[in-house]
Design a protein around this nucleic acid. Structure first.
Lengths: 153, 153
DNA sequence: CTAGTTGCAAAGAGTTTGCATGGCG
DNA sequence: CGCCATGCAAACTCTTTGCAACTAG
């Protein structure tokens, strides 16, 4: 459990809370905050604490090996299903009414209780779709760095 | 690309296709088929081929580090959203009509195109729910072994 | 001053890959 | 018989952990 309010904790929380809709890897966060003075292990450790405290959500995308972390201690996360855009990496919150309706319908039709906290719907968001399938829109923050993926031989 | 029809390929495909609703780790598969004569690396390599050929889906659950693989080359996988039970590890296919309806609604209300192939809804299935939250129902095939999760010092 | 935290480096866990051998066609 | 695929072990990547130094309260 958290006892002290360290500099690193403050830096990390500040950074995450100012990027509430971005799904980021621990590495990305650490690099981004490298100048501020926080190590990768501190990032991991604090991320774990924050996850336990439900301030952030840890999600894993299909072909991505690294875990993605995202700030969720915002009001619009309440009972809302998350929509993660595979192009821009941003996470949107499904319309609350819509989410409730879906949960209800699935529970009824398929006899299945969706765990809202663990479920993320992947796809393409409106903005990215509007920009055509091929332009990643000035890739402001791609969750992965697929430039040279594993250097295949 | 696949060129030869090897013994291992046959064993693996046979096993997976006979467990179409189970999300399994590479390790589980390899152990299960150890007696048949197929190594872990062959499992991984063939799994990769099959994933590329869209015969199986590779999914990653939240707190689980290992990737889960599942056979999807069955008719009822067509356009259907997958519901993965966190208790028994089984995957159900959402009612087709229901799935289409949800995709349509989300596209309309949230301007978001869900990628059916990459999205999995996690939760508790009807059977497991009926058995009360605490009895894992004779855990026929738990994808993880959460017994002692990381042993926190 | 005391105990929680940090940073570093080493350990782990899961997955991928190089290379020589073996098997499909 | 040639080339693809397998096995094994080493290499890799991401994440966790041990330990001494540091610092918040």
């Amino acid at each position: 459990m958290v006892k002290y309010r360290t500099k690193q904790r403050r830096i990390l929380l500040s950074y995450l809370s100012s990027h509430p809709d971005q799904a980021l890897t621990a590495r990305q966060i650490a690099e981004e905050l490298a100048g501020e003075g926080i190590s990768l292990s501190a990032v991991y450790r604090n991320l774990a604490e924050m996850e336990a405290a439900e301030e952030i959500k840890r999600l894993s995308q299909c072909g991505v090996r690294e875990a993605l972390y995202q700030y969720i201690a915002t009001p619009d996360c309440r009972g809302s299903l998350h929509l993660s855009c595979k192009k821009c990496g941003k996470t949107l919150h499904m319309d609350p009414g819509e989410a409730v309706e879906i949960l209800r319908r699935v529970a009824q039709t398929d006899q299945f209780s969706i765990d809202v906290g663990e479920t993320v719907l992947y796809g393409i968001c409106g903005s990215c779709k509007g920009l055509r399938q091929r332009r990643p829109a000035a890739a402001s923050f791609q969750p992965v760095g697929p430039e040279d993926r594993k250097g295949k031989k």
